[in-house]
Simulated assay, not measured.
Amino acid sequence: MRQWLERWFGVSDIEELAPALEEWLESPLGSSLMRAEQEMLDTALSYLFGYHLMQLSPDRRAKLYGDSKINHCFGLHPLATDGKVYTAMSEFEHLPVADESIDVVLLHHILEFSKDPHRLLREASRVTTPHGYMVVIGFNPYSILGVYRQLARVFIRDPKVKSHAIRISRVTDWLRLLDFTPLKLQRGFFRLPVNNRFFLRHTEWFDKLGSPIMTPIGGFYMIIARKQIAPITPIKQNWSLGRAVPGFSVGKSASRFPESARVTAKK
Rank of each mutant, 00 (worst) to 15 (best):
E204A: 07
R226L: 07
R226K: 08
W205I: 12
R191Q: 12
P216F: 08
I213A: 09
I213S: 09
M222K: 04
G218T: 00
G210K: 03
L200T: 07
F206V: 06
G218Q: 02
K208L: 15
M214K: 13
E204H: 10
M222W: 04
P193A: 04
Y221A: 02
I213H: 14
Y221R: 07
A225L: 02
P216Q: 05
Y221N: 04
G218M: 02
L200W: 14
P216A: 04
I224A: 00
R197D: 11
I217S: 09
F220M: 04
R197V: 15
R226N: 12
F220H: 11
N196K: 12
M222V: 06
I217L: 11
K208V: 08
A225F: 04
L192D: 08
F198T: 12
G210C: 02
N196E: 11
T203Y: 00
F198M: 15
L192M: 08
F220W: 06
N195P: 09
N195T: 10
I224C: 00
L209C: 05
T203S: 01
L192F: 15
H202C: 12
G218L: 02
I213K: 14
M214W: 11
A225I: 01
R201F: 09
Y221W: 06
H202K: 14
A225Y: 04
P193Q: 08
L200P: 05
H202Q: 12
G210W: 01
L200Q: 07
G210D: 01
E204S: 12
I217F: 08
T203G: 00
F198P: 04
V194D: 04
T203V: 03
T203L: 00
P216L: 09
G219E: 14
I217D: 12
I217T: 11
G219V: 08
